[in-house]
Amino acid sequence: MLELDAINAGYGRAQILRDVSLTVAPGEILCLLGRNGAGKTTTMKAIMGLLPLMSGAVRFKGEPISDLPAHRIPGLGIGYVPQGRRLFGELTVAQNLEIGLMVRRAGRDTLEDVLGLFPRLRERMQQRADTLSGGEQQMLAMARALCLEPELLLMDEPTEGLQPSMIEAIRQVVVLMRDRGTGILLVEQRVDAVLSIADRVAFIENGRNVDTLDASALRADHSLIERHLGV
Rank of each mutant, 00 (worst) to 15 (best):
L152I: 01
I7R: 06
K61C: 13
Q172R: 15
E28F: 09
F60I: 09
V191Y: 01
G34Q: 06
E149V: 10
R86V: 05
L132M: 06
D214P: 09
S55T: 13
V201C: 03
G39M: 04
A215D: 05
I225C: 00
I167S: 01
V191T: 05
H71C: 07
G56Y: 10
M166A: 07
D113M: 12
L2P: 01
L4W: 09
Q163Y: 03
S196T: 08
G10E: 08
E205H: 14
L218A: 00
L17V: 12
P119V: 00
L22I: 15
V175M: 14
E157G: 10
A198N: 12
G135K: 05
D156Q: 12
V114S: 00
R13H: 13
G161C: 05
E98Y: 04
D130I: 10
V114H: 01
G77H: 07
G161K: 04
S66I: 03
D156N: 13
I197D: 00
L146T: 09
L146P: 06
Q138G: 07
L33D: 01
L117I: 03
D211F: 00
A57M: 11
L186T: 02
G10Y: 08
V201W: 02
H222Q: 14
L195R: 03
M125Y: 07
L22P: 10
A169N: 06
V58H: 04
E136P: 02
A94Y: 08
M1W: 10
Q126P: 00
T43I: 12
L51R: 06
P52D: 07
V194K: 03
V24H: 04
T159V: 01
I16C: 11
I7Y: 06
G134M: 09
P64V: 07
E157H: 10
V187N: 13
L53T: 04
L185D: 11
Q137Y: 06
P69G: 10
E151I: 01
E151V: 00
T182D: 09
V24E: 05
L195D: 01
D19K: 08
T131R: 14
S66R: 07
T42F: 03
M139E: 11
P164Q: 10
I99W: 10
G183F: 02
